[in-house]
């Protein structure tokens, strides 16, 4: 029987292995096999978030940046300063719905300087 581990523990193990230089494909194959055996494939997206979380705790951060317009170099360097990670990777996304400003999503945390968020907050206050 395979021991049922919490996602947090699986994620920590996977992150350790990836950072120690093991092939990413091999690690992910092991994780996939574990999810299949324990019938937890539904949790795959959450597990990806958990692995990103575990990597972030070890200084490797993938940040999703959403903005209405393409990012300038100045903003990118500001974002690096804000996140303050050793290894930072930016995934950029253009979304006109945010209206203006920028939103930075790092695992478990968010900086929201978009107009959309400010409008929502204003609406909630008025209610």
């Amino acid at each position: 029987m395979v021991l049922r581990l919490s996602r947090r523990k699986i994620a920590a193990l996977a992150a350790e292995k990836i950072l120690s230089g093991e092939s990413r494909q091999k690690v992910l194959r092991e994780v996939a096999a574990y999810l299949l055996v324990t019938r937890r494939t539904r949790e795959q997206m959450l597990l990806v978030r958990d692995i990103e979380d575990a990597l972030a705790a070890r200084g490797v951060v993938v940040a999703d940046v959403t903005s209405a317009h393409p990012l300038t170099e100045t903003i990118k360097s500001e974002i690096s300063k804000l996140v303050g990670a050793k290894h930072l990777q930016l995934r950029e996304r253009i979304d006109p719905e945010v209206l203006g400003g920028v939103r930075v999503d790092v695992p478990g945390k968010r900086f929201d300087g978009t107009l959309q968020r400010k409008l929502t907050a204003l609406k909630a206050q008025q209610l």
Binding site: L46, L82, V83, V104, D105, V106, G108, K109, R110, F111, D112, G113
Partner: peptide, 10 residues
């Protein structure tokens, strides 16, 4: 304004 903790509804 800084990095705030966020989660998602599953």
């Amino acid at each position: 304004e800084g990095l705030n903790s966020v989660g998602i509804v599953t």
